[in-house]
């Protein structure tokens, strides 16, 4: 595969993100000419895209294509890695988040994240969900209880755990743990939810539950999900972006991208011929 986006004739002069965002709400997340380097190697190459509000946007592409790295730019989790250098702009809710004046902690309270492997704290189920609320300064016991219950209901976990809220979260099954992590993330009502392959470590039944949940949450949250699973992207997302070797190859409505991709590379990937 030696095709690069910039040299591909079909792409000449087209603004991919404008294309994708047409007919959708105004962009919640926007990147402009984003380059990211790990030391000397470039992980993201000139990414410009707009993620519309209250839809599910899926990032797909083979391993190492930069989709997770891009996701982690949106809440600045890449800051934790040494030797990361970034060029270009990332706007969240219209604000440049790499502006040195921006409070990263506040940004992360507004942009929730769910990780590939479920990572509940070694605390009780209740304390896991309450953790973020306590950070926000919620102290009253009844307030905490109400909001924990609400989040657990939203995450479709309440029925299963209401009797053992004060048992350790580590006793839950893998799928339950991941839904707990989602409940924990949405408890503090972030506008945006980033999901980094949230179902890749789960069995098909648990995966199904997570997918249902994502579709329900779309009412309230702008969701960006990185996934390896093409069917999953097709099932749950409204928009899909395909990345390859750090470049954004194609971005558009999921239906279009899967049924009528404009670039051969995308077609080969979504039909399973490489990746």
């Amino acid at each position: 595969m030696s095709i690069t986006v910039n040299s591909h004739p079909a792409l000449a002069g087209r603004d991919l993100s404008a294309d994708a965002a047409r007919n959708a709400g105004h962009p919640m997340i926007e990147t402009r000419g984003l380059n990211l380097y790990y030391g000397p190697s470039q992980a993201l190459k000139h990414i410009s895209l707009k993620v519309p509000e209250r839809v599910v946007t899926a990032f797909i592409g083979p391993s190492g294509c930069g989709k997770s790295t891009l996701l982690r730019c949106f809440n600045r989790m890449n800051d934790l890695i040494d030797n990361v250098r970034l060029e270009g702009q990332v706007l969240v809710g219209g604000q440049e988040i790499y502006d040195p004046e921006i409070d990263v902690i506040e940004l992360r309270k507004r942009v929730g994240m769910v990780f590939q492997r479920s990572n509940p704290f070694p605390k009780t189920i209740f304390e896991n969900v309450a953790y973020g609320l306590r950070l926000l300064g919620v102290k009253s016991k009844s307030d905490l209880q109400d909001r924990v219950e609400k989040s657990l209901r939203q995450a479709a976990l309440w029925e299963e755990v209401q009797d053992r809220l004060h048992a350790s979260a580590l006793g839950l099954s893998g799928g339950q743990q991941q839904r707990l992590c989602i409940a924990r993330a949405i408890a503090i009502e972030p506008g945006i939810l980033l999901m980094d392959e949230p179902a890749s470590a789960l069995d098909p039944i648990a995966t199904g539950k997570i997918e249902e949940l994502i579709l329900a949450l779309k009412q309230d949250f702008t969701i960006v999900i990185v996934t390896h699973n093409m069917q999953q992207a097709a099932r749950i997302s409204d928009f899909t972006a395909f990345f390859y070797l750090g470049e954004l190859v194609e971005y558009g409505r999921t239906i279009t991208l899967f049924t009528n991709p404009s670039i051969k590379q995308t077609e080969e990937y979504v039909t399973g011929r490489f990746g």
Binding site: V92, G93, P100, E101, I102, D103, E106, R110, P190, Q219
Partner: peptide, 14 residues
Amino acid sequence: MSNPVFNPIPPRRL
């Protein structure tokens, strides 16, 4: 169900 609103991010403070 309340709709989370995306409030502007305040400037960094000590």
